[in-house]
Write a protein that binds this DNA or RNA. Structure first.
Lengths: 339, 339
DNA sequence: ATCGGTAACGATACCGGTATCGTTCTCTAT
DNA sequence: ATAGAGAACGATACCGGTATCGTTACCGAT
């Protein structure tokens, strides 16, 4: 094995320039205490050697890093993508850069203590503050700036941005009920996630309010994936008394419902009405009626709140509630009254 | 201002458990040299104090971090998203975690040396290896594992994964020519990017091959955004002798062409044929004929190559060429022969 | 000539971990 | 009884930067 060339450090620069590391560090950080001539020489050496500072080393000693952390279980999900778009926008407008930490998958074996590991991993070590998206972690909070988008827990001990999931679900149900639908199927999200439960609760309460008894066979488990939406919808449609409409806990599951309908030769909305939740970018193209919870905006606002926290400014609210809006497209139709 | 609670360090754990930091470190890294009883006590203290290790400190001393870095200019772009999906998949299958570094925007003021800064920022400091997506940076390479997806330069000094941009463009042009189109507009990508130039070259060569003289007025500058596609298309369609087909350097620009056509009351494909490049997820929904360059797959393969490099295994190829494929949808039609 | 002030720079502690080596203690073999 | 081996653990150097303080040289003022 060949000898590994070491990376060039501040020591190398100092030696080559004939000055001390202190002086190089001063130049790097734009301190005033350096003679113009010396500065130019050092800058020359730096670019000649191709020196770049070691983030880890710097982070350890200096408090301010101008870097925000983001923890996402899975960056491939449309949900995560939408939120990240907003975060990205806020980052672009700020002086902060962003470090995203992901495991690629929620379920993955890891080292000892991996459970806690991945949250405050960035915390106080690399970044000035951390954004957590749709995660249960960070139960144990340190006092560092942390903010959650759509937390698993309804009332986390740190600030958060949440959508009005319950109200959104009520809106969907009232919309469908007004169209004349009585038998409405519900494809659940992951039960451990608070927002999924809130939507289910909205589904149930709206039915109660309308005086319709809840048929448990119309409520099918799911996990927010397209595949689960597909399977659940098949199950619903093949039953003896299939629903006329399906409310999926998120858009991805609703997309699965589209697939199932197509496979069974059913047209949407003629033979089946479908509503989703999230308004991911695909929804527009397939004409899916859904609830916009302004995910991108949530990410944007959360980032701005985090920046405030980092700057030691006071937050206006601990929990920012983002109102949802029903987006009517072409996946639902009114039922003719039965003669 | 209240006194800042410090984060809990390995020193705190050691003191509380009545052992040395060395022993705690051994427990953290699962070394064998610890008595079972001691280990349990330490683990107890760790979870009681909510200790999590400082990534920065750890990275500095130990070579192996089981962490890969990814540098993207803008994570909001559909292009980046597609590539990241593949990376995410490879990460999920591996023991590595991923750290994504982004500035949120390509054009952003920064500290001194920011130009170099953001590439090998992660390099040898935090991560075992770095993926670079569609960036010109890293001209100065260190010898650390680096791999580029779709590099700006055709022949970078480090391994890369690239699409067959030239061949893909030829395929598009031959497809359009076979449909009978003679006046074909081209909406350029960002000229400093190699892949954009390769596509333009394919456009020109195909025309030459077909014996059609190149009309420079049909070649409009662009920058890969939807907006630029919109503007360029308007310009093309409003000219005296508008094209019958438009080949956009990427799908986002093609989407802009759709907008422009709609605004002018032109139907696609009846009044105008459009082809894109990339096959982003939106393309399917609008029926855009495009070139699939398997971006997700490129990310996947690049990640696997990087992991090989980190493990000191030999790469099969330095440049992995990913073949493109024309995806025919409904945005083009055959021209009737002129009578 | 002595002093104080300031500009420019160097020496060193320190951040929080890991790697290396040394120390202590027990147990077994001779 | 003593040496040697091995288990369990501690002490300390070190990673590559920044923060703090100290040092030197040069200046004008008293």
């Amino acid at each position: 094995m060949p000898t590994k060339k070491r990376t060039v450090t501040i020591q190398d620069v100092a030696k080559k320039a004939g000055v001390s590391v202190s002086t190089v560090s001063r130049v790097l950080n734009g301190k005033a205490d350096v003679a113009g001539e010396t500065q130019e020489k050092i800058l020359g050496v730096i670019s000649k050697l191709g020196y770049t500072s070691n983030l880890a080393a710097r982070s350890m000693r200096s408090r301010r890093k101008d870097l925000l952390g983001l923890v996402v279980p899975d960056i491939g999900f449309p949900y995560s993508i939408e939120v990240m778009k907003g975060i990205n926008r806020a980052i672009a407008e700020s002086k902060f850069d962003l470090l995203v930490y992901t495991m690629g998958d929620v379920h993955k074996s890891g080292a000892v203590l991996h459970e806690q590991h991945y949250v405050s991993l960035l915390n106080n070590s690399l970044t000035d503050g951390v954004l957590i998206v749709a995660s249960a972690a960070a139960e144990f909070i340190t006092d560092a700036p942390i903010i959650a988008v759509d937390p698993h827990i309804i009332n986390p001990r740190y600030p958060s941005v949440q959508g009005t999931n319950y109200q959104g679900a009520l809106d969907v149900m009232n919309y469908l009920l007004n169209l004349g639908h009585q038998r409405i199927g519900f494809v659940c999200g992951r039960p451990e996630i608070a927002s999924a439960e809130r939507r289910l609760q909205g589904y149930k309460d709206a039915l109660k309010e309308a005086g319709i008894t809840i048929d448990e066979s119309l409520i099918i488990p799911g996990d927010f994936t397209t595949k689960s939406g597909y399977i659940s919808t098949l199950q619903l449609l093949k039953s003896n008394n299939p629903p006329t409409a399906i409310f999926a806990a998120n858009d991805q599951a609703a997309l699965g419902a589209f697939q199932a309908a197509e496979e069974l030769g059913l047209r949407i909305p003629e033979d089946l009405s479908v509503v989703g939740f999230d308004n991911i970018s695909e929804a527009k193209f397939v004409g899916l009626t859904t609830v916009d919870q302004f995910l991108s905006e949530m990410g944007y606002i959360a980032t701005q709140m985090l920046i405030k926290m980092v700057n030691n400014e006071k937050l206006d609210v601990q929990v920012h509630k983002m109102p949802t809006r029903l987006v009517e497209r072409t996946s639902c139709r009114a039922l003719e009254p039965v003669h």
